[in-house]
Design a protein around this nucleic acid. Structure first.
Length: 478
RNA sequence: GCCGCCUUAGCUCAGUUGGUUAGAGCACCAGAUUGUGGAUCUGGGGGUCCCCCGUUCGAGCCGGGGAGGCGGUACCA
């Protein structure tokens, strides 16, 4: 093959491979989340990775080509298909399609990969996993409150202590109300929302710049500001840093007062259920997605701090968010169906758990490897492996074709705890040898000369054939 | 998208004012050891110096363009 035509072995940009430790750790974490959601009575459901682009609502305006940001391709019949970019839009499609047969309210959960065709960043990939729970068909703030409490319970079930996480909530209606009360025009409302969203990162001064004349960042890039007046900026900052619901910020605004009533109802439920402000609390700087949230919005933040590679202190920040989206199903049916939901960024939450030592990686022991000393006796080795498996011990027979030295290397790379060796000599005596690789490498570290190394068989002992299982069990126990 | 930094062996990186055959550590393979991974020693394989164009007697090094990576910022359902 022409060398120039050889492809480079490399993972696609923004994607990554996942190894066994992480897979096992993720499984454990996902199982915990599932258990909590099942306890709450939510039902699992799954949708495909691919939806019709129109179902995701992602066509460019006035064009028959899909929006940037989504991976799209055309089917045989020229219809546009897209990889899902979240789990909410496909759920809305599912509910719209199956409305007759689903209970109302319909409460469901699911986990899955989603895809975004955009520039990857640190900790941001073009394929990542989300874990969603949604309640479709209830306009009650109880549904929003339930989702928040469930998220809080999930964090604790994962081992994050109370006080190290917080479920923050706000309402788009409240935010809308403020803009009405303080006469912030529709044209700058999005800029206003984006600025508030950056409060924890940029601080009051940075946000003030974004609300006013604009801000230049360290790399020299300039972000246009909202051009608000000083009094509007002052009120916005007071609003965004308030820790309790304050009617004066939305006085005279119908939607603001509606938002206020929703949040008060949620607070009542939290208090009645014993969820204090250390778990769930109002935070007026929570903004979330600008497009589709219509009522309460929430965000789950991890508060614990760790050091990054350079030794700087970093907060984890948001590991999930959600809110009420009353218009999503209506896109299909024309009927307004109130819905609310919460989405966990699985990879992000996992790396957070890993950093605080709450992820359960590699609790699976590597298998015991039975060496093939005599190729004609594979059946014998196979029986040993079956006996070990029968006793609940992970075990495998070497299935390659190489000699003993390579088999030992294989077992080492595999991080096998033990190997079982039975060559002609042992067979003749009705014995086999068990070698403890973990102990052996410890002992070898103290050997400095070739003679000493060659003179002994480290961490290796003989047992009668019949005692294979018992001896392996005992050796593993050490 | 915008701004900055970076790209030399599988990995981490040296490489002098532009000058012969481009190096190290780790990893890998082999031997010392014909039945032993891991210690030790010896040897070995590995390179489009990111790509293209230019300057030059001569480019890993200088200039231009491009690609890729990293970081910040913007956008983010």
């Amino acid at each position: 093959m022409n060398k120039d035509l050889r492809p480079k072995a490399r993972v696609a940009k923004g994607f990554r491979d996942v190894g066994p430790d992480e897979i096992r750790g993720l499984r454990t974490m996902l199982a915990t989340i599932q258990r909590v959601y099942e306890d709450y009575g939510f039902e699992p459901v799954e949708q495909p990775f691919v939806e019709y682009t129109e179902a995701l609502g992602k066509f460019l305006p006035d064009q028959d080509r899909p929006n940037a940001g989504v991976f799209s391709f055309q089917d045989d019949d020229e219809q546009w298909l897209s990889l899902r970019y979240d789990l909410t839009a496909p759920l809305a499609r599912y509910v719209a399609e199956n409305q007759q047969s689903l209970p109302t309210p319909y409460r469901s959960y699911r986990q899955g990969w989603v895809f975004r065709n955009e520039k990857p960043g640190p900790g941001r990939f073009r394929q990542f996993m989300q874990f969603d729970a949604d309640t479709v068909g209830s306009a009650s703030p109880a549904a929003d409150a339930e989702v928040c409490m469930m998220a809080a319970d999930t964090m604790e079930a994962l081992g994050i202590p109370r006080g190290q996480y917080v479920m923050k909530f706000n309402s788009r209606k409240l935010l809308d109300g403020f803009t009405e009360t303080y006469k912030i025009g529709e044209d700058v409302k999005l800029t206003w929302l984006r600025a508030l969203d950056k409060l924890d990162r940029l601080g009051k001064d940075g946000v003030a710049l974004l609300l006013g004349p604009g801000r230049k960042d360290e790399s020299g890039d300039f972000t246009k500001g909202a051009g608000l007046s000083d009094s509007q900026i002052e009120a916005s900052l007071a609003f965004a840093t308030a820790t309790t619901l304050d009617p004066q910020f939305v006085s005279g605004s119908a939607s603001g007062e509606e938002g206020l009533r929703d949040l008060q109802a949620m607070e009542t439920l939290f208090a009645a259920s014993g969820y204090g402000k250390d778990r769930v609390r109002y935070d007026s700087s929570v903004v979330r997605g600008l497009e589709y949230y219509t009522g309460p919005v929430f965000e789950c933040e991890l508060l614990m701090e760790t050091k990054d590679e350079d030794g700087r202190t970093v907060r984890f920040g948001s590991v999930g968010g959600g809110g009420r989206y009353d218009d999503l199903v209506a896109r299909f049916t024309g009927q307004k169906v109130p819905a609310t939901g919460f989405s966990i960024g699985v990879s992000r939450l996992y790396s957070a758990l890993k950093l605080v030592g709450k992820a359960q990686e590699s609790n699976v022991l590597s298998p015991v490897v039975v060496l093939v000393m005599d190729k004609d006796r594979q059946a014998d080795y196979w029986r040993m492996v079956m006996a070990l498996r029968g006793a609940g011990i992970r075990a495998e027979m070497y299935v390659g074709t190489a000699g003993m030295k390579a088999q030992m290397k294989y077992a080492d790379k595999r991080s096998a705890p033990l190997v079982v060796i039975q060559g002609g000599d042992e067979k003749a005596r009705g014995e086999l040898q068990i070698k403890d690789l973990r102990l052996g490498s410890e002992l070898a570290a103290n050997i400095a000369s070739r003679e000493e190394y060659a003179a002994q068989r480290l961490a290796q002992f003989s047992v009668p054939e019949s005692e294979l299982v018992a001896a392996v069990k005992q050796a593993l126990g050490n």
